[in-house]
Design a protein around this nucleic acid. Structure first.
Lengths: 191, 191, 191, 191
DNA sequence: CATGAATGAGACTTCATTCAT
DNA sequence: CATGAATGAAGTCTCATTCAT
């Protein structure tokens, strides 16, 4: 009731997409799940494709905002660790949204160069942290796009693991281990 | 002509799947691309679903074989590096096959528990290497499934990056960097 | 602003109907073109069908009025020629209206017996002229409905030709030729 | 049974189009009338549009052939009269086909420049007759496209009249009158 | 083994019309 | 009078699959 019909449609679409896949979900079933008429969906979104993209960008920016809600830290390692935990917590609170990101990232139908750009844009604040840490020789001088790709990808994989097996998420060995791999992986080689 | 019609169908399916997505590719278009009649496809595969699964398992085992074709090495690091390079070379030689693995791994329609099992089975020989290295304290004592997940995922991500931007694949900084992240990420924390 | 919304709707409908066809034009697109809301259209017309019929009868009577605005002439040939030119001028000044008449006249959806009646009613004054001329043996004693049909139809065809190829309308050979066919066609056979 | 499914579809489409209009006839209703499945229609025609165009050109050429099946005559007037009667007979034997021609000729959706070209192409043999007759001063030196337009249009109008009121078709005054208007209309002016 | 016409359920989308504001 | 979100029936077209040849 507090929700607009447009939001109801987006919610239902998300739920169905992650369980059945995007293509396997009909617009009729989305409308039904949202308790609106078929036509209503197309009143708010010109096409199924645009509904998917709208969902995608809204989720992407939601993740970006969630990550930045963390206090400023002194040490770079602590700062990055904060981002990391913030992002993981968001994923555990919004498992379907994360699964959707994972799904769409590998669907040729929706895979565009936007993808890379959107990732960089959303994670821009991370880029700065990393550059700075590399400059301070806290991180190894790896190519920046390689690093970003790794961060993005390791995050999605770990988040997905913790969603599929929620008991792991509460064990320190997994929680610390996941971040250790990230930070250690980017650290300078031990001489 | 040296190819059987069945193989022609598999080849055409792979090509179309990675460019348009599995669901967006019709059996009719596969048959057309393979220069066979619609009915012929269903002589060789009982359904589209079975065609997809057949393609999947054949590619998965092809990757497994490709990785094991490497000489035995003394040092664990060298041994793992060999596996890594073998796998990357296979991906660069078979970009469509890698893209297919990536696509199917995140499609809810085909996502089953098999997936995890198949991954472990294919990478079984790696597990042994890692366990041994952990025992020798060359690698950190991280949970084994976390490690496996990381290896599998980092491989797919790097292979995909090198396929999308082939020029990166030839630069030492990217080649070495990708592996450095892997090995370093699993290494024990510096004092 | 000098135009009422109702008139704006009629104008927009006419424009869209002749370019895309009646059925292919949605009420929504008419409203948009007229810069009014969807609902507004249905305040002024109970249905799309009634909008079409309203447009039809208003155009039909407009043509009737246009034709009668001509001075009384002595000779029957001059009188008919006047009607003819008046009607052609109206068509050239209102090309879309003529195209609409042409379109609707052959659409089974709107084709009713009204059509014949309306044509006769509009052209009633012409009937008298023809009857008289036949009586004076200036015209051949052809069946009256055949004659009327011919007049109506030849007019629409010539008007349409001149609208499609406006340069022809200014050439004497076409202007005179078109009327010559009409008058000559109805004349008594030579010797 | 002697009919192929493709022909059954064309026949049903014609029947429904002339009674309800092209747009008002759904592909589903065509298939039903033809006793085939919906998909069958789209197996033979890539779209509804192409079905319409296929029907159009087949009818147009059928009319062309019907007209040419007449013996060679000495006098131009007799020759043209033969064409005229042949064409009218075809129309009376195929009333739906004529109605379809009439309908499509005025539908903005299908109205293309092809139209004019097709008409000229189909009626090419008539053009020659007319040119010759003009040269012999049996016909007035009117612009050729005006003449052709008139012939085409007068034919459709008369044929339609005779179809709508079949009793008229058997009366000499109408039969002769219709042709008299044609020939007389094109004749030189009485000095 | 191979073919391709035929099937019919179901997908996406459109649209005339209504109604609460 | 005017608005535009909402409706749901209906339209065009797709597609995995079958089967007679």
């Amino acid at each position: 009731m507090g929700y607009s019909k447009k939001q109801q449609i987006l919610d239902s679409a998300l739920r169905l997409f992650v369980h059945q896949g995007i293509q396997a979900t009909s617009t009729a079933s989305i409308a039904k799940e949202a308790n609106v008429a078929t036509g209503t969906l197309f009143h708010h979104f010109p096409s199924k494709q645009s509904l998917v993209l709208c969902l995608y960008s809204s989720i992407k920016s939601e993740l970006g905002e969630a990550m930045q809600q963390c206090p400023h830290q002194q040490a770079p390692r602590q700062q990055v660790r904060h981002y990391w935990q913030q992002a993981l917590q968001w994923a555990q609170a919004n498992p379907e949204k994360l699964r959707f990101l994972l799904h769409i990232a590998h669907d040729p139908q929706f895979y565009t160069s936007q993808h890379q750009e959107l990732m960089v844009a959303t994670m821009n604040f991370l880029v700065e942290q990393i550059k700075q840490a590399q400059h301070q020789q806290l991180l190894a001088p790896l190519p920046l796009d390689l690093v970003l790709n790794f961060c993005h990808n390791h995050y999605l994989a770990c988040a997905n693991l913790f969603i599929e097996q929620p008991d792991l998420a509460h064990q320190r060995s997994y929680q610390d281990g996941a971040f250790q791999i990230l930070w250690q992986g980017l650290s300078p080689v031990k001489s």
